[in-house]
Amino acid sequence: MTPTPWLRCRLPRVAPEVRLVCFPHAGGAASFFTSWTRALPDTIEVWVVQYPGRADRINEPCIEDMAALARAIAPAISALAGIPVALFGHSMGAAVAYEVARLLQRDPATAPVHLFASGRHAPGEVVDEAVHLLDDEALVRELVRLGATDGELLRDAEIRSVFLPAIRADYTLAETYRHLPGPVLDCPITAVIGTGDPEVTAAQARRWREHTSAAFALHGLPGEHFYLVEQAEAVHRLIERGLTTGSGSPVGASRH
């Protein structure tokens, strides 16, 4: 593989059957998915997108436009062709993964085999939000409310100066994103939400079914917006089933 600033793979597999590319949430970095590399079976090789403006890309400018970000990421994933690729995105990352999937689908050789959309309303669901316009204090309170960060940590002005620019840029990207009509995905979509998530309802997540011509499944797991931290094992099992059966839908799961 040619090195790329966009993707990280901490544990290359000897003979993977599928590559799972993960997209972090707003303000998130590739390190969020570190534990996934060993938690998933040897047949699944985990890759993670590293957005600019954080971690080892801290000195690069953030991208605040969804289309521009998707266009930048898609070629890096296209280079993984040869082994089927699935996409998993959480929160903002779900929308980014979807837009990248739309680009990858233009070429049958790079079309994804599955999209896992976590903690995010469907692309066509317009939600009027303006978190990116809040002052620093209010933005930190919002992050703490969602369980995204330690409020005490961000009381330090120097730490804020490092982390808040990328977080604000990501919220700008996510909140100004508007879905444009086009072909639906050919691959299955599995939507997953925390049953206590204040940011997305089951009805909003269910509308992901409108964006695929293939199978769709909706799963609710105990927890709030960052349910996937405590429910990591359950999420991993959903991914395994989804990549095995195509739908990721166990008995009793909603498909409507």
Rank of each mutant, 00 (worst) to 15 (best):
C9V: 07
P165V: 06
T176W: 04
D197H: 08
R19D: 02
A15G: 06
E175Y: 03
G119T: 03
R237M: 13
A55R: 11
V21H: 02
T172Q: 05
Y177C: 10
L238F: 04
E45P: 09
T172E: 11
L133Y: 05
Q105G: 12
Q105V: 04
V229A: 15
G27P: 01
A76I: 13
A95L: 14
H256I: 07
L40V: 04
N59K: 15
R178Y: 10
H179F: 10
T43H: 15
E158H: 15
I189P: 03
S213A: 15
Y98H: 07
I58M: 13
E142N: 07
A117S: 06
A70W: 04
P108Y: 03
G93I: 03
E99S: 03
A215H: 09
G246H: 00
L221I: 03
I73T: 08
H132E: 00
P16H: 07
F33D: 05
R178A: 11
T245Q: 08
E230C: 07
H256G: 13
A122Y: 05
V144N: 08
S78D: 13
L133H: 11
Q50F: 13
F226C: 03
W47G: 08
E230K: 08
P222G: 09
Y171D: 09
L243D: 01
D42N: 09
S213H: 08
H211T: 03
P181C: 02
E17S: 09
A15C: 11
R207M: 01
L133Q: 14
V235M: 01
A39S: 11
A101I: 00
P75F: 01
P84N: 03
L87A: 10
L11I: 07
Y51G: 05
L133M: 13
L7S: 00
L7Y: 01
A166F: 12
A55H: 11
L146M: 00
L218K: 03
V235L: 04
I193S: 07
L185A: 06
A72C: 09
A79K: 10
W36A: 13
A214N: 12
E17K: 15
G151W: 15
